[in-house]
Design a protein around this nucleic acid. Structure first.
Length: 834
RNA sequence: GCUCCAGUGGCGGAAUCGGUAGACGCGUCGGACUUAAAAUCCGAUCGGGGCUCAACCUCGGUGCCAGUUCAAGUCUGGCCUGGAGCACCA
C-alpha cells in the first residue's frame, strides 16, 4: 500500500471501475425493502456550484448509508432542462437552446461523476427531450379531461424582460423571480391549472408530513391562506339605471357589521359602471385609468397613502337599516373575496386611514370589557383587538368571537349572507410565451374551437425552423411549419397553441418518471410508481418551499384522482439544506465570491470536498465556506490514509467477533469500546436528522483514539493486531459513505473482495458501547463541586455515601445542614444544604 | 403588520430525558523534529479573582429580564437582535 495519499489518481480509477461494473444500478425487483433518496434535479446552467455539491453530497451519503443498512436504494438524477436561460443564451450567441443545453448537461455530468455520486445513470431524465415532454403533454391532457386545465381571460402577471406571463408564485415582491424586473398586469387569455380545487386538501395534508420542517409547512399554509368569515349582500338603493342589485362582500369580521360606514369596490370591479352615478362618472373613470397604469409594486405598497373616489350610490345595511355610500379604492383587490369590502373604520386599520382622509363617519361597535375607548374621532388607529359589542342592537354585550357566529347565522336566516371559507391561493397560470418549453398540446379549430391534440399524435414537437433573433415575441411564432395544422375532429384548418408550458410543470412529476424512466408506452407503470414512491428522503434548497414543492404535491393528488397512482403525498421526508456562503454572503458570480468545484477536485480531490461540505454545519443551516476548513479536511484524510497505510501489514479483514471480556489488556479493551461508541454515535447521528457535522467529528475522535493507542505500542501481539484490525476496518466502513474513493482504495489494498460499498454497515454492542466505570458528578445546591470515578453498578445509596465521603464535599458542607439529597442513577448526586 | 426560524469562546459548531457548558475542528500561541523549510507530532487556548509562578482554589458565564425546579443553554412568560416567508388578502 502506498504511503502517500494521491486522491486524483485513486478517484479517477474508481470512478471508471464503478461505471464499468454498473456498481450503482438499482433493480426494480429485490427482496430488500426499498428506499428512495432524491436530490432536487439541477437546471443545466453550465457548471456545478457549491450549492449543488452540498445538495448531492448529502443525498449521496444518505443513499449509501441506507444501502449499507440493507435497503434497495433508488438514487437517480436528471435535468430540469427547459427554461429561459437556454433561450436567452441562444439568442445572445445565435446558437440553438438545445445545443447549449446538451453541452451543459455533458459538462455537468462529468462533474457529477467526479464527485463520486452513486447515481443509477440508466434512469437519467432530461425534461427537454421529446421522450420526456411527450409525457408532460400527455399529463396535461389527463388534467384537461378531468377539468383541471382550462383557458380564461384574466389579469395576469407580465414580465416584459422575459417576454412572458408568470404564475403568482413566480412574482416575488412584485418582481419577476428570475430577472428581478417589475411585473405588470396584462389582460390575456391563458391556460390555468385548477390548483384551487385542492386548496383545502393541500393545507390539511400538511399535517401528514411529519418529516417536513415547520418552516416549509407554515410557508405553504400561509400561501394557501385559508380564512373563515362570511359573505354579506348589501342591497343597492339608488343604482342609476334603476336596477335592483346587491353588492356582496367577504369579511372575516362579521362581528363588526353594525359599524359599517361605507363600502369599497376594487377599481376593476365588474359592476362598477352600473354603480356609478352620471355625476361621478368622470372622476371614477379617471381613477380607474390611473389604477390600470400603476405597476403592481406601486399598487400593493402598504405605505402608499390610501386613495379613492365616491361612486355616488348607496347601500342599505340590513342589520341597522342605515345607508352608507359606495366608493372605489385600489386598496380593494378584485381577485380576492368578492372584490368588494365592507368598511368598518373603527375596527380595521386600513379603513380607519381611509375614513380619516376622506372624513367618513366612525362608529364604535366593539370595546374592551373593562374600559371605555372614548370618541373614535380622537383615536390614533383602529381598535382591532377583541372585546364586547356595543351599538349593535340585539348583539350588545356579546363577546365578539361569539358574535361572529351569531351575526352570520342571522344573515343566513334572513337571506342576505352565508358562512364562507376563503383562500388566497389562485389558480396556476401555466402558459408561457416562450420557445424552450413543452408545447401545450392544444389546437384551435376555426369551426370546433379548442381541441386537445389526440394522445396518439404526441409529442407535439418543438419546431426547429425558428428564428431566435426575434424581439418582442416568442421564437416559436416564426416557424413557418408549426402554426397551421388540421383539426382532429373535423379535419378542417386549425392553428396550434403557440405557448409552451411553465417549466414547473415538467418538474412537478419528474420524481415519478425515475421509477420507470425508459418506458416508451406509458408515462410510468402504475405498479412501479406505487412501489418506489413516495420519495423517502427529498433534499433540496428552501427556495422551492412554495413553488416546486406545492406544485408537486398538487400534481400527485391530481394524478391520484386521475387513477394513475395510489398515494397522495410525493415526499415523505424533506431536508431543506442551507445555503453555501463565503465571507458571510451567498456565493454568487456578481459578488465574485464563488469557489469552483473543479478547482477543489483538482487540488484536493472529491473526498475532501465531500467531507468538508458536510463537516462544518448541520445540513439545514447555512454553511460558510473557508479555505482553511478545506485544508483541514484534506489533512485529516491524509492522517486516516497514513494510519491505514502504516498498519497495512498488521490489518486483517477476516475479523472474528470480539465480545466483552475477550481481551486481556485494558488499553485494547478501551480501544474496542471506543470503536463501539463511534459506531453507535455515527449510526444514530445519521439516522436522526442527518447530523453529518457530528458524524465527522466522531470520525476524528475514533482516528485520534487509534493513534493514541498506537503511540503506546512498540510491538504488536495477536490480540493487539486483532483489535487494531477491528478499529481500522470499522473506521473505513463508517467513513465509506463520505470518503468514497479513499475507503474503496484502502479496502482493495488490504485485500478486500468486491467493493467496500457493498459491505454491511457496522453493528455495535450496547454493552461494549458504554464504559465500565462512570464519572459521578457531585453537586452542592446544583453546582458541580467534585467528580469521582466510580463503578457503574453502584446503588443509589452507595452513590450517596461516596458523594458524602468526598473530602471536598465534607469541607464545603461542614457546619451546614443537609436538607435533601437527589441521586440520579449512574450520573450525579446533588446535595442541598442550608 | 402577521407567521416561522435562530442567538453558546476569536470563528464554525457540540451538549438523547432539564443533570459535568464549550465535544470535534478552524485560528492563535508555545514546543519537538529539521542546517532550514514544508509535512508531521505534542501542549495551551471562556472570563474575573487568589497564590512569587504553577499545580491548585474560587467566583461568574449560553442575547436581556423574570419565573418554575434540588438542578435551566435546554421548560414557561415578557422583551431585544438577526434571518426567512407572506403582506392594502378585508
Amino acid at each position: 500500500m502506498k504511503e502517500a495519499y494521491f486522491p486524483q489518481e485513486i478517484e479517477k480509477k474508481w470512478q471508471r471501475v464503478w461505471e464499468e461494473t454498473g456498481a450503482f444500478k438499482t433493480p426494480d425487483d429485490s427482496d430488500k425493502p426499498k428506499y428512495y433518496a432524491l436530490s432536487m434535479f439541477p437546471y443545466p446552467s453550465g457548471k456545478l456550484h457549491m450549492g449543488h455539491v452540498r445538495n448531492y453530497t448529502i443525498t449521496d451519503v444518505i443513499a449509501r448509508f441506507k444501502k449499507a443498512q440493507g435497503y434497495n436504494v433508488l438514487h437517480p438524477i436528471g435535468w430540469d432542462s427547459f427554461g429561459l436561460p437556454a433561450e436567452n443564451a441562444a439568442m445572445k450567441h445565435g446558437a440553438n437552446p438545445e445545443t447549449w443545453t446538451d453541452e451543459n448537461i455533458a459538462y455537468m455530468t462529468k462533474q457529477l461523476k467526479m464527485l463520486g455520486l452513486s447515481y443509477d445513470w440508466d434512469r437519467e431524465v432530461a425534461t427537454c427531450k421529446p421522450e420526456y415532454y411527450k409525457w408532460t403533454q400527455w399529463l396535461f391532457l389527463q388534467l384537461y379531461k378531468k377539468g383541471l386545465a382550462y383557458k380564461k381571460e384574466a389579469a395576469v402577471n407580465w414580465c416584459n424582460d422575459c417576454g412572458t406571463v408568470l404564475a403568482n408564485e413566480q412574482v416575488i415582491d412584485g418582481k419577476c423571480w428570475r430577472c428581478d424586473s417589475v411585473v405588470e398586469k396584462k389582460y390575456l387569455s391563458q391556460w390555468f391549472l385548477k390548483i384551487t380545487d385542492y386548496a383545502d386538501v393541500l393545507l390539511e395534508d400538511l399535517d401528514k408530513l411529519a418529516g417536513w420542517g415547520d418552516n416549509v409547512k407554515t410557508m405553504q399554509a400561509n400561501w394557501i391562506g385559508k380564512s373563515h368569515g362570511a359573505i354579506f349582500r348589501f342591497p343597492v338603493l339608488d343604482a342609476p339605471n334603476g336596477e335592483k342589485m346587491d353588492v356582496p362582500v367577504y369579511t372575516t369580521r362579521p362581528d363588526t357589521v353594525h359599524g359599517i360606514t361605507y363600502l369599497v369596490v376594487a377599481p376593476e370591479y365588474k359592476d362598477i359602471e352600473k354603480l356609478t352615478t352620471p355625476e361621478n362618472k368622470v372622476a371614477v373613470e379617471e381613477y380607474r385609468a390611473n389604477a390600470r397604469k400603476m405597476s403592481e409594486i406601486e399598487r400593493l405598497s402598504t405605505d402608499r397613502p390610501k386613495t379613492g373616489v365616491p361612486l355616488g350610490t348607496h347601500c342599505k345595511n340590513p342589520f341597522t337599516g342605515e345607508t352608507f355610500p359606495l366608493w372605489t379604492a385600489d386598496y380593494a383587490l378584485v381577485e380576492y373575496g368578492t372584490g368588494a369590502v365592507m368598511a368598518v373604520p373603527t375596527h380595521d386599520t386600513r379603513d380607519f386611514a381611509f375614513a380619516k382622509k376622506y372624513n367618513l363617519p366612525l362608529k364604535t361597535v366593539i370595546k374592551p370589557a373593562d374600559k371605555d375607548l372614548g370618541a373614535p374621532e380622537s383615536w390614533d388607529d383602529a381598535y382591532v383587538d377583541s372585546g364586547v359589542l356595543v351599538n349593535s342592537g340585539e348583539f350588545n354585550g356579546m363577546d365578539n368571537e361569539s358574535a361572529k357566529k351569531a351575526i352570520t347565522e342571522k344573515a343566513v336566516k334572513d337571506g342576505f349572507g352565508e358562512f364562507k371559507t376563503q383562500y388566497r391561493l389562485r389558480d396556476w397560470l401555466i402558459s408561457r410565451q416562450r420557445y424552450w418549453g413543452a408545447p401545450i398540446p392544444v389546437v384551435y379549430c376555426d369551426k370546433c374551437g379548442i381541441q386537445p391534440v389526440p394522445e396518439d399524435q404526441l409529442p407535439v414537437l418543438l419546431p426547429k425552423d425558428v428564428d431566435f433573433s426575434v424581439v418582442g415575441k416568442s421564437p416559436i411564432t416564426t416557424s413557418p411549419t408549426f402554426k397551421d395544422t388540421v383539426c382532429p375532429v373535423c379535419g378542417g384548418h386549425a392553428t396550434r397553441e403557440m405557448d409552451t408550458m411553465d417549466t414547473f410543470i415538467c418538474s412537478s412529476w419528474y420524481y415519478l418518471r425515475y421509477a420507470d424512466a425508459r418506458n416508451n408506452k406509458e408515462c410510468f407503470n402504475k405498479n412501479k410508481v406505487n412501489h418506489w414512491l413516495p420519495v423517502d428522503q427529498y433534499v433540496g434548497g428552501i427556495e422551492h418551499a412554495i413553488l416546486h414543492l406545492l406544485y408537486s404535491r398538487f400534481f400527485t393528488k391530481a394524478l391520484r384522482d386521475c387513477g394513475l397512482l395510489d398515494f397522495d403525498e410525493p415526499f415523505k421526508n424533506l431536508l431543506t439544506q442551507g445555503m453555501v456562503l463565503k465571507d458571510g454572503s451567498k456565493m454568487s458570480k456578481s459578488k465574485g465570491n464563488t469557489v469552483d468545484p473543479d478547482e477543489i477536485f483538482e487540488n484536493y480531490g472529491a473526498d475532501t470536498a465531500r467531507l468538508f461540505i458536510l463537516s462544518d454545519s448541520p445540513p439545514a443551516r447555512d454553511f460558510d465556506w473557508s479555505d482553511a476548513g478545506v485544508e483541514g479536511c484534506y489533512k485529516f484524510l491524509n492522517r486516516v490514509w497514513r494510519l491505514i497505510a502504516t498498519n497495512a501489514d498488521n490489518i486483517s479483514l477476516d475479523i472474528p467477533e470480539i465480545k466483552a471480556g475477550d481481551l486481556n489488556k485494558k488499553e485494547n479493551d478501551d480501544l474496542l469500546r471506543n470503536v463501539h461508541i463511534a459506531i453507535k454515535g455515527i449510526t444514530n447521528d445519521i439516522s436522526n436528522d442527518f447530523q453529518f457535522n457530528t458524524v465527522i467529528s466522531k470520525y476524528r475522535e475514533l482516528t485520534n483514539a487509534i493513534y493514541d493507542w498506537q503511540s503506546k505500542k512498540s510491538t504488536l501481539d495477536d490480540e493487539d493486531k486483532l483489535v487494531l484490525s477491528f478499529a481500522i476496518v470499522s473506521l473505513m466502513k463508517l467513513m465509506s459513505p463520505v470518503a468514497v474513493h479513499l475507503t474503496e482504495e484502502a479496502w482493495h489494498d488490504l485485500g478486500g473482495e468486491g467493493s467496500i460499498h457493498n459491505q454491511q454497515w457496522c453493528k455495535w454492542d450496547e454493552n461494549l458501547a458504554k464504559s465500565s466505570s462512570i464519572t459521578l458528578v457531585v453537586q452542592i445546591n446544583g453546582k458541580v463541586k467534585d467528580k469521582i470515578e466510580v463503578d457503574e453498578g453502584l446503588s443509589q445509596e452507595e452513590m450517596k455515601e461516596k458523594a458524602l465521603s468526598s473530602e471536598k464535599i465534607k469541607s464545603q458542607t461542614a457546619g451546614k445542614t443537609v436538607v435533601k439529597t437527589i441521586v440520579v442513577p449512574k450520573k450525579l448526586v446533588n446535595i442541598v444544604v442550608k
